[in-house]
Amino acid sequence: MKFLRSLACTATLLTGHAAAAAGFHDHLGLQLWSLRDQTKVSTTGALDLAVGFGFTEVETAGTGNLSVADFARELSARHLMAVAAHTGYEALQNDLPKAIADAKALGAKTIICPWIPHDREKGLSVADAHRVAADFNAWGEACRAAGLQFGWHPHGFEFVADAHGDTPFAVIARETKPDLVCFELDVFWVFHAGQDPVKLLQQYPGRWRFLHVKDIRKGAVTGLSTGSAPPTDKVAVGDGQIDWPAVFDAAAKAGVTHSFIEDEGVQPLKDIPASLRYLKTLKP
């Protein structure tokens, strides 16, 4: 994005923490789920909004009312690059070849599974996690054979420990192969679940490749591994509880290559520009 490129150009002049904090500007995109309501009105109109905000990189979440081919053409017409594509667990399970073909048609280099289906009352069990890890490895192998990368986006409910202190997240992280399965850290959801995003980045270096940049309201209750929260708890980046310089510093050291603003709040057309203004002026 134009107004962020000037900051990226100065990154080589910075050292230590400052260099790490500035690096994310090179690949700061938008998760198009942020414009889900606008997409319902007009898919192309939502893409126009993304361009108007200054984005050149996006992460897809479906293709609105357009076919994959038509959506890809609309992205190209606006010089928007689909870095990654969110694809549902069931879609991957039911027709993996189609999911791979769709991602390639969009120009995405990575398929991200954004949600693991589970019983909302019982939660995701460690036993479930063993099965999920096996699926992820198989899908990662197929993606690699097709020239793509496969990744997973935890939502917070994966951090509930069983009687032995093990968690579904730990099982999946332990049993998936690093060369087949990368991770996307949603800062809001891990913080909401009572986890420290900086420590998670440090604990699994090389596994985290993508970051969802989303802040949580000051005073919002945390420690809830539910994978759901009121939209009012999701605020513009910089207005909430997250220590963003520390997060970006840890992300750079952990190997994160792309960051995406994902706005799930009540006023994305106001908060996305506000988030960008904050990130543009972020100093170490």
Rank of each mutant, 00 (worst) to 15 (best):
A127M: 00
V132L: 04
H155I: 00
F183L: 13
P154T: 07
P97G: 00
A163T: 10
D186S: 06
T110H: 05
A133C: 05
V190K: 10
W139A: 00
C182G: 13
R144C: 11
W189A: 02
S125I: 01
R120F: 13
V160C: 01
V126S: 09
A138H: 12
F169Q: 07
P168W: 13
H155V: 08
E184N: 06
V181S: 14
W115P: 03
V160T: 13
G140L: 14
F150H: 07
T87V: 02
E141N: 10
T110Y: 02
A133K: 03
T87A: 00
A145M: 14
W139S: 04
T167P: 15
W115H: 02
A173R: 11
E90W: 14
A134S: 00
A127G: 03
I172M: 15
E90R: 10
E175L: 09
A103I: 00
D102W: 00
A146I: 07
W139N: 08
A133L: 01
E175F: 11
N94P: 04
H155W: 06
T87S: 01
I100K: 04
K104Q: 05
G123T: 05
I100V: 09
C182M: 15
L124Y: 08
K177I: 12
A134T: 10
H155T: 04
D166Y: 11
E184L: 08
V132A: 00
A133Y: 14
H86G: 00
K104W: 05
G140M: 12
R131L: 01
K104N: 01
G107P: 15
D128H: 02
R174A: 15
T167E: 09
G107D: 12
F169C: 01
K109V: 14
H130D: 00
Q93W: 06
T110K: 05
F188M: 00
D166T: 12
L185Y: 13
F191K: 03
Q149K: 14
Y89W: 15
A108V: 06
F136E: 11
Y89D: 02
A133S: 04
R131Q: 05
F183V: 10
T87F: 06
K177F: 10
A127T: 02
A108T: 04
G107Y: 10
A134I: 04
A103M: 03
R120M: 10
L185G: 02
A146R: 12
P117H: 07
D186V: 03
V190P: 09
W152I: 03
